[in-house]
Design a protein around this nucleic acid. Structure first.
Length: 193
DNA sequence: CATGGGATTGACT
DNA sequence: GTCAATCCCATGC
C-alpha cells in the first residue's frame, strides 16, 4: 500500500479499501465493509476539533486511529486525507483469510461469519487493542495490503452509516454486495456505488 | 469536579 | 425485540 492511497478524499479511500487486506499478529482478513468520517460533518469525532481524543485523526494519512467504543470495544480506523484534515475510514467487517484458529480462540466462537462481522468483533479477532492507536498502517504492527486480483470487479453497495445519531442521512457506508461477512444491519440490495 | 453520551455486542424475554 | 456492560473524554458549572 502506498502513502498516497490514504492521502485522498476519504470517500474514495473508503470505497477503495473494500477488497484490501488487514493483517495483524498472524491473522488477516479482506475488508468487506467500511464507513467514511470527515471533520466537516457532526458524526465524526474530529468535528469538535483537535482534542486529546481526536489528535490521531489530524495526523498524517495511513495511520491507525483506534478508540474505545461504549467503554468496551476497540474500533479500527485508517486515517485519510492530508495531515491537518480530521478524516478516517472505519473498518467495519472482514472476511477471514488467515489465522482463523487464532481468531476463533480470541473470539471464543467457531462460526466463520461471527469472527469479524462487526467493528468491535474484528479488532478482537485480530488482537488489535487501544495501544496501537497512532501506529502506521504501512510499516507498523497492523498492515493494510492492496486488493488481490479479482476484487476490482466486486460490486459495492452504499448505505447510511450504522449506530450514529448525527448526519444520519449521508450514505457513507460501503459494503461488498452479497458478502455474508458484512455486519448487521445488512443493507438492502439496489443502492449501488 | 460532575455528568452524559457514545462509530457495539451478546445475553436474555 | 429489549437492555445492560463499561470507561474515556468533552462539556458545563
Amino acid at each position: 500500500m502506498k502513502r498516497a492511497f490514504f492521502e485522498r478524499p476519504v470517500l474514495e479511500v473508503a470505497r477503495d479499501l473494500v477488497g484490501c487486506t488487514v493483517r495483524h499478529d498472524n491473522a488477516a482478513g479482506v475488508i468487506v465493509e467500511t464507513e467514511a468520517y470527515h471533520d466537516s460533518e457532526p458524526a465524526c469525532h474530529a468535528f469538535v476539533g483537535l482534542t486529546p481524543r481526536t489528535a490521531t485523526l489530524f495526523e498524517p494519512p495511513g495511520r491507525a486511529y483506534v478508540y474505545r467504543s461504549y467503554g468496551v470495544h476497540a474500533m479500527l480506523n485508517a486515517v485519510a486525507e492530508p495531515e491537518g484534515v480530521g478524516a478516517a475510514v472505519l473498518i467495519r467487517a472482514l472476511e477471514p483469510v488467515a489465522g482463523i484458529d487464532a481468531m476463533r480462540e480470541r473470539r471464543g466462537l467457531d462460526r466463520l461469519e461471527d469472527l469479524c462481522s462487526g467493528p468491535g468483533r474484528l479488532t478482537q479477532a485480530l488482537g488489535i487493542g487501544l495501544d496501537l492507536n497512532g501506529t502506521d498502517l504501512l510499516t507498523g504492527p497492523i498492515r493494510v495490503e492492496p486488493r488481490a486480483p479479482g476484487w476490482r470487479e466486486r460490486v459495492l453497495a452504499t448505505a447510511p452509516r450504522v449506530g450514529i445519531t448525527k448526519a444520519v442521512e449521508l450514505p457513507w457506508r460501503f459494503t461488498a454486495e452479497g458478502s455474508r461477512f458484512v455486519s448487521r444491519p445488512r443493507p438492502r440490495a439496489g443502492a449501488l456505488a
